[in-house]
Simulated assay, not measured.
Amino acid sequence: MKRYFITGLLIWVPLGITVWALKFLITTMDQSLLLLPTSLHPESVVGVYIPGVGTMLTLLVVFITGLLTTNIIGQRLVLFWEGVLWRIPVVKSIYYGVKQVSDTLFSSQGEAFRKALLVQYPRKGSWTIAFMTGYPGGDVTNHLTGEYVSVYVPTTPNPTSGFFLMMPKSEVIELDMSVDAALKYIISMGVVAPDNGKKHPAPSQYPTPPQQAALLHGNSSPAGTPADD
């Protein structure tokens, strides 16, 4: 009975979370319909609410914005708009702070979140997965000796919170692992481990307690294991 219940949970929990996330995303993006006159809303045109219309409108607006800002006229309009925002005290701080972060994250030439690393945190001998976000800059570099990298250590199961660290480059290990695989590993709390082609030994292959005691005392042929002739 318990096994069947757990099996059912393994099917429905991921499905339920996926449906909830999609519903939240679509509902949020559908709010863009508020920018249109009421006469153009799906309820007024076809007489029924159609989920996803606002999502399509949002994606279309984003695409057209990117298309327009790739030419000279669009770039000048963006500069004019940013100049207006620069004159508003509170808005200026929020807008340019978010813009710097988004430019760093989404830039194809940036280093942010392009590499998964293995670092020792929070103490020596304890390892965790981190993401490289760049290199220290400003006056910070005047107080660091040697080559350092900036890393983000996410928490689990919520990787959107974490810790920002500057670590010596010699103390971080670059992993042959995609960022997506590393995120899955973190979110699953280590349950969904990336496949590297290696298999862990079966429980019967682990040394028994008498064998472990013999190994600790320096005996290369522990009790219960025949010695080589």
Rank of each mutant, 00 (worst) to 15 (best):
R3N: 01
R3Q: 02
I6C: 07
I6E: 09
P14E: 04
P14C: 01
T18I: 09
W20E: 06
L22K: 07
L25T: 10
T27K: 08
T28E: 13
T28Q: 15
S39V: 04
S39W: 09
L40A: 09
H41C: 11
E43K: 04
E43S: 10
V45F: 01
V46L: 15
G47K: 10
V48C: 12
V48T: 06
I50P: 02
M56G: 04
T70F: 06
N71Q: 09
N71V: 09
V78I: 06
R87F: 15
R87D: 12
P89Q: 02
K92Q: 15
I94V: 07
I94L: 15
I94K: 05
Y95E: 13
G97T: 14
K99G: 00
E111R: 06
K115F: 11
A116W: 05
P122G: 03
P122Q: 13
K124S: 12
G125K: 04
W127N: 03
T141V: 12
T141Q: 06
H143L: 13
E147M: 04
Y148N: 13
V153T: 08
T155L: 10
T155I: 11
T156W: 12
P157I: 06
S161E: 13
G162K: 04
L165M: 02
M166N: 10
K169Y: 15
K169W: 05
S170P: 03
L175G: 06
S178R: 03
S178W: 05
L183C: 14
K184N: 03
Y185D: 14
I186S: 00
S188K: 00
P194F: 09
A202R: 01
P203V: 09
S204K: 11
Y206A: 05
H217K: 12
G218T: 05
G218R: 02
S220Y: 04
A223S: 01
P226W: 14
